[in-house]
Design a protein around this nucleic acid. Structure first.
Lengths: 201, 201
DNA sequence: GAATTTTTATTAACACCGTTAACAAAAGTA
DNA sequence: TACTTTTGTTAACGGTGTTAATAAAAATTC
């Protein structure tokens, strides 16, 4: 009864070809322009066949999201295994995380929902400079009053903003609505470490 | 010649009514479902009139992005002015930033392009747990070997992931493509501070 | 005040999108 | 060969941003 097996094999191949066509689409034009119709066009089938393999477009995106997190997990595990001291592992994993994000930025954007239109938009918004300018000047002042006035203020500004945005966006991704007030402890933890890194050494 | 003035005043009012209708739409259903047609419907005008006041939909989003950054800047400035010591200012601004993000989460999501579909998706992806599980276990190990084994590992995990994601996403928002290799210094800076906060105190 | 120009608004359409019902063709089973 | 199941197609529904052609209103000029 090899006939049934051939059928499920063909189904899997078809499914894979859909994902492959979708991925090529994403590589050349990004997630925003990925469409069921273009996928159908690429694999030279009519539109509804795609719905025989995926419930909807979201299911396709879900597939890539899974793939992305699996790849990230593999990367982290591999890097972790190259070290024995946990502190060193955390450091190496951090660099691996960074590299993963930019080596596979299509995956990363999908996994963490980085809206690409926003990127183009933000560059036109001078008001952003107003907001970041306040942060920068404050950090400059903090550095000036510290024991290490030669510290790179721009580096510290990036660190400051990144910590804040990271905390907020991870929180927003994990659960919608206002976070539990206790979650401010994470903020407290991260920001106190940052401030110590400026004020003293 | 009050007639010309009245006209520009009416134009501004009209423009404001478009933004107001858009904002109500966003408040009730989010950015995803905001559409030109619904705005036109809400203000009881035909669709193309909106294009007399905004070049396209993107221009409307740009307007709100500006508004958001201006509000954030105002908030930060106000909070900063309540303190004199820069370190205290940075701390207070961090809390203000956090509150702003969740008090005006519609603004924040637009400003930093937090794709809302991604939020719902991530919750279904068990592979995420695989990846975060590796981070959590490593942090547990690092804490166990430290001088403060009672440290909250879950708190530290959140801090770790937030720092990483914050660094990456700010980088991706600011400029597309691979970041300058020197930008890894920001990562180094932030992550070394974090590791110190675990290993010693 | 009437004629003309300019501004403003509307209808209708274009080109997309995700999704699905109705139906035809092919493939497997009896 | 006749029947059933799977697979594929066409055509449509309701939605999106955007725009050309055109009508209506308002302001300006004579």
């Amino acid at each position: 009864m090899g006939i049934a097996e051939r059928k499920i094999r063909q189904r899997e191949e078809f499914r894979a070809s859909i994902l492959e066509a979708a991925w090529q689409q994403v590589l050349s034009d990004g997630w925003q322009s990925l469409s069921i119709r273009k996928i159908a066009d690429a694999i030279e089938y009519s539109i509804p066949v795609i719905y025989n393999h995926f419930e909807n477009k979201e299911a396709i995106l879900l597939e890539f999201t899974k793939e992305g997190f699996q790849k990230l997990a593999d990367t982290l595990q591999e890097v972790k295994d190259q070290h024995t001291v946990p502190a060193k592992q955390l450091e190496a994993m951090a660099y691996a995380y960074w590299d993963f994000a930019f080596d596979h930025n299509e995956y990363y954007q999908l996994m963490f929902g980085l809206g690409i239109p926003a990127c183009d938009r933000v560059k036109q918004v001078t008001e952003m400079i107003t907001a970041t300018g306040i942060m920068i000047s404050t950090i400059k002042e903090a550095i000036a009053q510290s024991n290490h006035p030669e510290t790179d203020y721009f580096l510290k500004y990036h660190t400051y903003l990144s910590i804040l945005h990271g905390l907020v966006s991870i929180q927003m991704i994990e659960k919608e609505g206002r976070p539990d007030p206790s979650k401010k402890m994470i903020l407290q933890d991260a920001i106190s470490g940052f401030i110590i890194s400026i004020t003293s050494k």
